[in-house]
């Protein structure tokens, strides 16, 4: 463990600016290394976290990210929750379509992030905010 950070406890980061997205990436990297993910899997989960943290900021109007080292009894992994109390998503299937965007981006954030992780769960409704949970297991 590095610098006295207890990685068995959830790490939290509020997301209110560009710099916070950078901090989320660094936090996810630290926990992914501790969870013994391979270099490729670390890269995938950090990239997915970057996309989702940016969504929290841009579409959710800011929110929080919580990163936890997890273990399913057979292998370690990393679980990340992105929560905002923004406008929510009316049509999740549409939002998960490659190339669909309401923000002028490439429309790869949600759909691409889903491809990069092992488990992807989204809880949202109009006016109810959005909560995305992703998990990546060590192989």
């Amino acid at each position: 463990m590095t610098s006295g950070v207890d990685l068995s406890r959830p790490q939290q980061q509020t997301v209110g600016s560009d710099e916070d997205v950078v901090r989320v990436r660094q936090m996810v990297r630290t926990v992914a290394v501790a969870a013994r993910l391979s270099l490729v899997d670390q890269t995938k989960v950090v990239t997915a976290a970057s996309e989702l943290a940016r969504n929290t900021l841009v579409y959710g109007g800011g929110g929080t990210v919580e990163v936890t080292a997890v273990d399913n009894g057979r292998k370690p992994g990393i679980r990340i929750v992105f929560a905002d109390s923004g406008p929510g998503i009316a049509d999740v299937d549409l939002a998960l379509t490659d190339g669909y965007t309401t923000g002028g981006g490439l429309g790869l954030g949600l759909s691409g992030a889903r491809r990069l992780v092992d488990e992807f769960d989204i809880l949202t409704a109009p006016g109810q905010g959005t909560r995305v949970t992703i998990t990546k297991w060590s192989r």
Partner: peptide, 14 residues
């Protein structure tokens, strides 16, 4: 570009 970055980019869809 690092190999892990290339693999991730393609899977991301870029």
């Amino acid at each position: 570009m690092r190999p892990a970055v290339a693999i991730t980019l393609v899977e991301l869809g870029l």
